[in-house]
Amino acid sequence: MREVMDEFGASGRALGRPAPAAARAELMPSGFASPAQDWFEDRIDLNRHLIKDITSTYIVRVSGHAMDGAGISDGDELIVDRALHPRDGSVVVAVLDGELIVRRLRITHSDTSTDPETSPTTKSNSTDPGDGTAAGVALVAASSAYPPIPVPDPDGLVIWGVATRCLHRV
């Protein structure tokens, strides 16, 4: 088992690991210091920009047109963070009939005492049981051709992760 770990264990770390910073400009050997050394910055790093936590970030591919209206097209890649708490309006990857689907989460509350932070839809995503106060939960498309998917049992809904970015070829 350990050998397998050694063989492949490093692969997950390739993504989003920033290169060692700074110090390069300081190491110039000559007496003529670089005039830029006080302004040295790391080069722009997409991984750092797009990924908050490498352990909870996954990339998935969209299949279909239901989210066209949200700027998410067929074939696009979505960056999904499984650690994020889904809220009303989040674009989520949810489990429906054993499949992963992408939709916008809509939570409507019945009364004023409701805490909007308390999502009833966090079965897989949070430790708190999410004592549901939601009157209605639905997964809605961003295209009128696809009717909203009602969620009669919000506690049974599994939110796989929350989409944070869409990679779309222009």
Binding site: R2, M5, G12, S56
Partner: peptide, 25 residues
């Protein structure tokens, strides 16, 4: 499995000063 293992181990490493990976899982 190798990638999932690396994710798990990285999470574990955030909760201790002394992580000793014993096997893939």
């Amino acid at each position: 499995y190798g990638d999932m293992s690396a994710r798990v181990m990285e999470v574990l490493g955030r909760h201790t000063t002394d992580l000793e990976i014993y096997s893939i899982d």
